[in-house]
Amino acid sequence: MSVARISELNARVSELAVQAAGGGANGAYLQLLDVTLERMNRRLAAADSGTVDAGDLCELLTDVSAVHSTLRKHALDQPSYAPGRIFEALARLRAKTTADEVLDAAPAELCAAGAFDRAMISRVRGSSWVPRLLFLSDGHDSGFNRELSDYITELEIPLASPMVEAEIVRRRLPALVYDAQQEPRAFRVLMKVSRTREYVVAPIVADGTVVGLLHADAFLSERPLTEADRDSLRTFADGVGLIYERAVLESRLARQRELVSEAFLGAEQLLDVPADPSVRLPGPAIRTAVEVPASEVVALPAFEGTVRSPSEGLAQLTAREREVLALLASGATNAQVADRLTVAESTVKSHVKHILHKMGAPNRAGAIARYLRARNNERRI
């Protein structure tokens, strides 16, 4: 390999080193690479002029080895983060059934996906943030970590400016804090107790509101945190927010369905009560009966439909109409039924019209009540 080619490769290594080193904790690596590469360039220039001897070549080899060692150390210190791991962790969180389960599992999944040693999730309540759970990759083996885990459960920290977390909640952006022990905007008491050197933190946003915070560091490995750690945490926190929001909505929907079901069952029970002539409803005081002339009697309009028993009306429905009626009984709207059955909303309205006619019901509430009575009768048989 010619000296010119070696010089070209040396220049490319230098460019890559500058791009990879970035700033902050990688500054020391960048300085060491600059010094080593500069020495290599001087020796390459001497070799190109033909004035290099065996001793210079040995020194050149030593410099090359130093560059190799430095780059290798830099590579080992980088987090083993990959987008695939983040998405796999979020997929596991989606399997959780409640919002609380999502929050409780998030710190452990974050450590597994982002190569962090510690992760803490907190709830944002008004003008405070309250640590909820601390996950430690050492399994709480040390007494220090056990005490730290107990300590954070008693904290309620004000979101006062210029605290880092207050800015994160306000701007909804993640942050990387390098020197946590000396950072005046960090919560100094927690930093001292946890012995945190540097950390990353990101907001958890659900339904347009910051509902929590995710903190993480590399306490055990002592590797320097980088902007890549901050970005991976942001990706993970964004996913947690969406999964949390979905879990909350599903819980509300399930509760609404329970309330609707209870209301219809209550109406069904009222309809099932047999008439008792001995029971008299409270009313006004008895007055003297007055005969009303036939000419003054106003006839009420009769309901345009045939009154049928619930089972008889249900038997006349088609399979699709029964499916539509079952969805209506679960509390679904016309639009939701149309989306569930992959049909137009106008088609659903047509089905509802036919259902009311066949069941002899004045409106959909009456049809649903008769449907529930028929189902209840079927269960009793």
Results as ranks from 00 to 15, higher is better:
G50L: 04
L176Q: 15
P83H: 03
A228E: 14
V210S: 00
Q182V: 05
L233I: 13
K349A: 07
R340C: 02
G266W: 02
E101W: 11
R370N: 08
T196C: 15
S127P: 02
A180S: 14
S127G: 04
L155P: 05
V248W: 06
K353D: 11
T288N: 13
D56H: 03
P284D: 14
P83K: 01
F116T: 09
V67Q: 05
G84L: 00
L30S: 12
A216K: 13
S221L: 11
V307Y: 00
P184W: 13
F144E: 06
L356K: 12
I168F: 13
V298N: 04
E183H: 09
I368C: 05
L60N: 04
A160P: 01
P362R: 11
A28Y: 12
E15V: 12
A285L: 12
A75R: 09
V352Y: 10
A95R: 05
L213P: 06
S161I: 03
S142C: 00
G366R: 04
A160C: 07
L271S: 09
P79L: 14
A254P: 01
G23K: 11
V189Y: 02
R308M: 01
R373V: 07
R252M: 12
A294K: 03
V352R: 01
E88Y: 07
L220Y: 15
A202D: 08
L233T: 13
L214K: 12
G50P: 01
G208A: 08
F264R: 11
V35P: 00
P301L: 05
V164R: 14
N334R: 08
E147T: 10
Q256H: 05
N377T: 09
A105K: 07
I243K: 02
R379N: 06
P274Y: 09
L136V: 12
R322I: 01
A119V: 06
I381W: 03
P293N: 08
L271V: 01
H74T: 02
V64D: 11
V169P: 01
A315L: 10
T288H: 06
L16G: 14
A332H: 04
W129N: 08
D138T: 11
L259K: 10
D217I: 12
S14C: 09
C111G: 10
F264T: 01
A66F: 06
E296R: 12
S311Y: 02
F303T: 02
H351W: 05
E15C: 07
T235E: 14
L190H: 04
A166R: 10
A47T: 13
A89N: 04
S278K: 15
A89L: 04
L265A: 11
A105E: 15
G283Q: 06
L271D: 00
A4W: 13
I381L: 04
R195C: 15
E156M: 10
R188D: 01
D339V: 07
D63I: 03
F116Y: 11
V124G: 05
